[in-house]
Design a protein around this nucleic acid. Structure first.
Lengths: 133, 133, 133, 133
DNA sequence: GTGGTCTAGACCACA
DNA sequence: GTGGTCTAGACCACT
């Protein structure tokens, strides 16, 4: 019975983390995309329903959605809803690899300045992968 | 004498992380101490040189040093410099993992918003690891 | 005497245009950049001062600035101010031309569907250039 | 008979312009009439075909057609189609220029935010004009 | 019903 | 002083 409701997105906020609510929402959507729990064209919860769900002000949800729209992560249609954008596919493999290289390098060096080794990092990411699955 | 300056600390700041610069500096020093990359009595860069290095306001570096002095992590000797004091820095595995988690999640999110999956990311990092080895 | 105050940015809003205030602000900044009236590293008016100036709510100005920050047009530093970003220079000539080509083509086809010819468009843009100078 | 279908109307929508789709359609039809690209009695695409073409909801096309019918610009014949009526569309130079101004400014802004100057833009468009000639 | 815009005002963190 | 976050609530436009 609970079987057909796999992959359902569950948002949750941690008020103590210090991370702004709207950023937590963005992070969770982005993580869901990276995990394939959200894919092209899928609809996000409506602004109001998510606001009720998380017990926060609709403006805060709207802000998160708005920022994602600017970044091209989602598309929004007046009076219809907000959907995962599908335009990100337009990149060729070379460009993709370039971008991944860039952000990876910057991530590794950042982690490095905190004393983490590449191995540690990879192990950690693999753990995250396990959790989700 | 100055010849064996191995283990040189490399500071790096991420303006987009939302974490204030002064906190990023403190964290990196703490991690370095916990890692033994910095030990008792070692000198930190001067406020000015680090400010130039990181291209930020000297006040910001000063604030970081100040706060560390208050916490007893470093000692400042007027006219001489700032040195690691002998106070133990408690940096347990949990705290370390928190930091790694934070920067990892932000990295995954960024990659995710470009359409990369977690698997792709891990594979890429592993490739990098191979190259270096 | 008025000679040294050339290039000063003057913001103005048209409430009747139907264009949201925050978008009008963004448009004016972008136009100013295209006209070289604003260049790399220059500081924008503070959120509060511009709000007073335009007699609108500071949140509205903040929203405009925020959106420009997300798009990479400006950089903002806590407690310091908002500045025209300087990272846009990192593009090589080829990439630049590609982008210009893309947005130009889309503009021309859009104008075309309203019945404007390329000549008309160019003449119009030249007129705009005259006005500003 | 169907052979001389020159002057075919090309609709194009810009979701990012903020102008509602139905208004964009009306504007484009009006401009075409003023330009004589559409004349008395000519048939518009069916609601469904245009909706498919533009990848939008048929309701949105219907709304545009509806509003044009109310204004007397087109006439709908049940089961046959929608046709340009003989009402004159007042589309003076001022209104034309307004539209051109709007889309031009938005284009310049976009280019400006990529660091292109107005001069560069004009030069590029002139080059395109040369190529075609 | 959907999202978009704007105001007003509070509180916080950084310099 | 600067910008950042969040709330509450109003009003509008699109479907």
């Amino acid at each position: 019975m609970a079987e057909l409701e796999l992959k359902k997105l569950e948002f949750s906020l941690d008020p103590k983390s210090g991370v702004p609510f709207y950023k937590q929402i963005i992070l969770q959507v982005e993580m869901a995309i990276a995990d394939k729990r959200l894919t092209n064209g899928e609809q996000l919860p409506t602004v109001r329903s998510l606001a009720v769900d998380l017990k926060i002000n609709p403006n805060t949800v709207a802000r998160a959605y708005n920022e994602m729209e600017i970044r091209g992560i989602v598309m929004t249609q007046q009076g219809t809803g907000t959907f995962i954008s599908d335009k990100k596919v337009e990149m060729d493999a070379v460009k993709r690899e370039q971008i991944l290289g860039e952000i990876s390098r910057s991530f590794i060096s950042k982690a490095g300045s905190y004393g983490f080794t590449l191995e540690e990092i990879i192990r950690y990411l693999q753990d995250i992968g396990q959790e989700v699955t």
